[in-house]
Every structure is written in structure tokens, then in C-alpha cells.
Amino acid sequence: MNSNQLVDEVRAYCHEHSNPQNLQKYQRYFKGGYDGYGLTSIQITDKVKELSPSLESGIETALKAVPVLMESGMYEETSFGFLIVDRFEKKFTPEVFHIIGSWFSIGITNWAHADTLGMYLLPKFLKNNIIAIEDFKPWLYSEYKFQRRCVPVTLIKSLKMVGVEKLVQFVEPLMTDAEREVHQGMGWFLREAWKLNPIEVELFLLKWKETAPRLIFQYACEKMEKEERLRFRRTKKGK
């Protein structure tokens, strides 16, 4: 199966299994809008397992198909592309990493696709020493908010291996980010870092409590006791 055939097969499957009721249900999770077919995650993952072995050039075929699938704007088509590429972990290279980075300019427009990359594909590049943490530095300053969000989400799986202090310092530029989706990703990262090294993370939060967006603190302090969370409230003006 070549890339054109893969795109046709994915789209035919999506149309055949479209579910308007699911579509309506899923829309509530996407404030920025959701265009899709209403497929379940099980339907997608089962089809991905079926399709992946049939690709004539493996990861090259998948990588060529992804931009075409993304351009439709249909949620499940992009999901298929990402998850099929993920099946070829053993073929990941620095070039593949840079190709993934180029996808943000094509159409990664929601938190779920950013987190699919950050939770599944991108950590494998670090785990297998294909790239270094520093290769994400340009992403911290990307014009695309979901590319910036991907950095802290990806680094969650590296916290134990690399260390909380180093990674917290690495993502610090995002503490002044203007976008809500980035705040959520940062808060999630800091919450997981806090579980491993509460002292280091609490000192970091105290440093930023008067200036960083409150949503970061809402997520980062979620697992703390109520009394602990009070320490990270912003001081009222005049006091």
C-alpha cells in the first residue's frame, strides 16, 4: 500500500464508521472546534494495527501520508496518521523528529493531537537517544502554541531519567507564555515533577507565584493538600 492508497483507505474507513452521536459528544472537549467522524479510540487503534504492516515503504509511506491527512482538518484522519507513524518506533531518526516538527505549520490545532505527540511519539526520541533535550529548545519559542505545549508534555516521561531540576529550568521560558493551552501543559508537567521532587518544584512555584498565569498553579498544585495550595496564592495588591 502506497501513501495515496493509505489516505484513501483511512478516509473510506472513517466515512464507513462515522457516528453523529459520538461526534456531538466529543465536541464538548474542544473549545476551538472539532471536525470529525465520531470514531471511538478502539476503532482507530484496531485499524492502525491492521494497516501498518501493509505499508510498502513502512515509515516513509506513513510520513508522506500524514500531511495529506492533516490538510482535511478531520480529527480522526490526523489521529490515524500520528498513530501509524508511532508503530515504526524502530525507524525513528533525527530527520523524522524534524519532520514531525514541521507538522505544526500544517495543522495541529487542538490539545489532543499535541498530546498524542507529547505522550507517545516524541518521548521515544529521547528514550532511544535519537535526539537530546536541547533539540526542543527552538520549540519553546515556536509561533505555534501547540508546539510549545508539546515540550513540557513530552518531558514528563523524562523527569525520572534526567531530573526535575534540569527540566524545570529548561521549560521556564513558558512560564510567561500567553496561551491557555500552554499553561495547561506546564501545570501538568509541574504537577508530575512535584510528585518526584516537591521541594524543588515548590521553590520554583514560589518564585513565579506573583507573575505567572494562575492556570499553571491550578494544575501544578492539584495534588497538594488545601493548606499547601494556599502558599501559592498570589498576594493581593497593596499587601
Rank of each mutant, 00 (worst) to 15 (best):
136 F>K: 02
79 S>Q: 13
227 E>T: 08
225 E>A: 11
150 C>E: 06
23 L>P: 03
161 M>D: 15
173 P>I: 01
167 L>E: 10
138 P>F: 00
51 L>Q: 03
2 N>A: 01
9 E>F: 03
222 E>T: 03
58 G>L: 00
238 G>I: 08
120 Y>L: 09
227 E>M: 06
84 I>S: 10
122 L>H: 01
89 E>K: 06
35 D>S: 14
89 E>W: 02
81 G>A: 11
202 E>T: 04
106 I>F: 09
228 E>N: 06
125 F>I: 01
67 P>F: 00
165 E>W: 04
229 R>V: 10
195 K>A: 13
42 I>W: 07
175 M>K: 00
16 E>G: 09
162 V>H: 08
121 L>F: 05
211 T>E: 04
208 W>R: 07
108 I>V: 15
136 F>D: 14
140 L>Y: 04
203 L>Y: 03
223 K>S: 14
154 T>G: 02
4 N>E: 11
162 V>E: 13
215 L>R: 02
237 K>Q: 07
27 Q>G: 15
212 A>L: 04
134 E>R: 10
101 G>Q: 15
78 T>C: 14
138 P>E: 10
171 V>D: 04
136 F>M: 14
8 D>L: 09
93 T>S: 11
156 I>R: 03
229 R>G: 10
74 M>G: 07
130 I>G: 08
37 Y>E: 12
169 Q>C: 08
234 R>G: 02
201 V>K: 03
215 L>P: 00
51 L>M: 11
232 F>S: 01
136 F>H: 10
79 S>R: 07
199 I>R: 04
239 K>S: 05
133 I>P: 08
194 W>H: 13
219 Y>G: 07
43 Q>P: 05
89 E>V: 09
26 Y>S: 09
168 V>T: 00
33 G>Y: 00
99 I>E: 15
182 V>G: 03
65 A>N: 02
206 L>G: 02
181 E>F: 15
217 F>V: 02
234 R>M: 07
2 N>D: 13
73 G>C: 14
72 S>N: 13
112 A>F: 08
159 L>H: 00
73 G>H: 09
120 Y>M: 08
88 F>T: 00
209 K>Y: 01
35 D>A: 15
